[in-house]
Structure formats: structure tokens, C-alpha cells
Amino acid sequence: MEKNFLEVDKLQTAFQTDKGEVISVEEVSFQLRPGETIGIVGESGCGKSVTSLSLMRLLGHSGVIKKGSITFNGRDLTKATEAEMRSIRGNEISMIFQEPMTSLNPVFTVGNQMLELINLHMKLPAKEARAYAVEMLTKVGIPRASEIIDEYPHKLSGGMRQRVMIAMALSCKPKLLIADEPTTALDVTIQAQILELMKKLRDESNTAIMIISHDLGVIAEMADKVIVMYAGQVVEEADVFTLFDDPKHPYTKGLMDSIPHLEHDSDQRLFSIPGTVPTIHNMPKGCRFHTRCQYATEKCAHEKPPLLPIQPESDHRVRCWLQQDDPHRAPIQPRTEVIA
């Protein structure tokens, strides 16, 4: 097994707002080996994107990493200077985004935007740089790459633009590719193509991928291990098979139960977790999920559960009192409701 090249330890990110400082993400920890894929799942507003932007240190004026460390190739990114971060962004860690329609600058050609990155990090002679850009476009399956390179983004479809983003992101052979909901805005057949492409390129280049999604199907398809986030915290962490076979946290189970299945009868109402993610300004005390959890006890409302392995030495960690107090309690059943 190769060594971890990325270790995120108890990351805490805060934003300054009109109502004072709010903690958006806290106690997020995970490790990543070269070529490995980690999936981050959770509802909107759980801190998935903030976690990824923290790695890039692209939190804007108001965001700041308050605590924790991000050790990337032996360097702590939370302490790196802005100039060091610029040499890492796009080069060693690159990123693709949810909205391919708006992620490319409409007034510059595809080639212009790719060459900007290539020139920034790779110091190639002009002709070679262009040839390399065409090569990258061909690699991500763009037909007529040598013509497309001179087109403006509005001439391309969403799927093609996401391919351009991937080509750009992988140009400098990054060690880590952060994909923030890369297929959410695409239709299903294009989604499958993009995921296939990412898997193929990952296997060729040994790039580690951090894929953020609320689509468990995408995670199951791509990830080796998964962290489930709720309200800014990691609530469960496991390898992908364990997580899907044996989810421990009631929130994870709720997410699983919310997946529509083909074999369900058409009169079955799809399960949904009651309530919404609490707003950042009034986080519940104790376990953050207890307000929506049907198994919540008195303890959950008052004491914060820690993230602990389900068994000693296990890689499967969960932040839930139920798992840590009483191993003999009744198992949580999958839920579906029948429409009366």
C-alpha cells in the first residue's frame, strides 16, 4: 500500500457574516492515497463544497481555516503562503465544478483558457503547449480537438464543456482532482460518460479523486471510500462496500432509504428524512442530527457524540451515541411508506 499523500486533520472552517462568525465545517478528517477516490456525500448545506474549497484555500474574503491541518505531500496547506498555494492550484490539486455551463469564461476561447493554465505551470514553448492542449482535449474524447480548441465555450454542449474542464484540470497531472458535483448539471447518459472518463483517466494517471455528490449512485460508482457529512461534520466514514452494505448512522441509513429502487411498487412513497438541515446560526446542541432522528434519546440532545470506530481498529467510523452505547439495541429497519 502506498502512503497517504493527503491527510486532513480536524479541519475547521469559519466564515465572517453580518451576524458574526459562523463555523461552516468542523472536525473533518480523512486521508487519501495516490490513485484512491474518496466520496463526500450529504445534503445541500452540509459543508461538502466548503471542505473542498478549504483544500484549495479558495474560501474568499470572509472564509478562514480556523483549526486543523491539511498535510499535502508533507506540507501543511493551512500555513502555506498565497504564492505557494497558487503554484499548487491547478498544478498539484485541481478542481472541476458543478456547472459546466458557467465554469468556462464566455469571452475566451477554449484554447486560450487551457493555455493560460499550461503556461502558468508547465513552461512549454508556444507550439508544444498548443499541441499538448489538443492532445488533452483528444484524451477526454472531444472530437475535432484541433478545431474545438479555437471555439468559444458557448459553441459547446454541457457535456463537452465538462470534458474541457476535465482536460484542463488534468493538464498538469495533478496528484488530486477535486470534483464538486461534476455530473449534477448533466443529463443521465452524459453523466455516465463523464464518470467513465474520470475513472479511465484516474487509472491511467494514478490521480487521486475527491468526488463530492449528493447522488449516492455516483459515489457507489466512483469511490473507494466515503465520508458522509451532516451539518458541517463527518458523521460516518467507511469504505464504499461497508457503507452501502451496513450503514450505521441513522442519517446514512436515511440517505440510503431515500434512493428510489426499480423493484419498488409504484404506489410506494419514497422515504425522505423529515425536516431540513439546521441553519448554521442555530445548530442543535448535542448530536446535530437529533432533531431529525427517530432514535434520538435524551443523551443525543445534550452531549456531542465523537467520531469513533465501530470496533477497535476498524476503518468504519461513526458519530452516533446509538453505536457506542448499546450494541444490543434493535436494528434499524429500512423504511418505505405505502400511500393509503
Binding site: M56, L58, M85, R86, S87, I88, R89, G90, N91, S94, M95, F97, E99, T102, S103, L104, N105, P106, V107, F108, E116, L117, L120, H121, M165, M168
Partner: peptide, 26 residues
């Protein structure tokens, strides 16, 4: 607030160029 400025930053571009090249041109 446009997404393509975030893309430009994620490439490792200096803020000066992010604003004055990618931003101002638009």
C-alpha cells in the same frame, strides 16, 4: 460572483489577472 472566476482562481492565477482579465473583460 461568476463561476468562471472561481475556475480562474482554481488554476492558480493571480487575483490581479482573475479580476482584470477574466472579470473586467466580461
Amino acid at each position: 460572483g461568476q463561476d468562471y472566476l472561481r475556475t480562474a482562481r482554481s488554476k492558480g492565477l493571480r487575483e490581479f489577472f482573475v479580476i482584470n482579465k477574466h472579470g473586467f473583460r466580461n
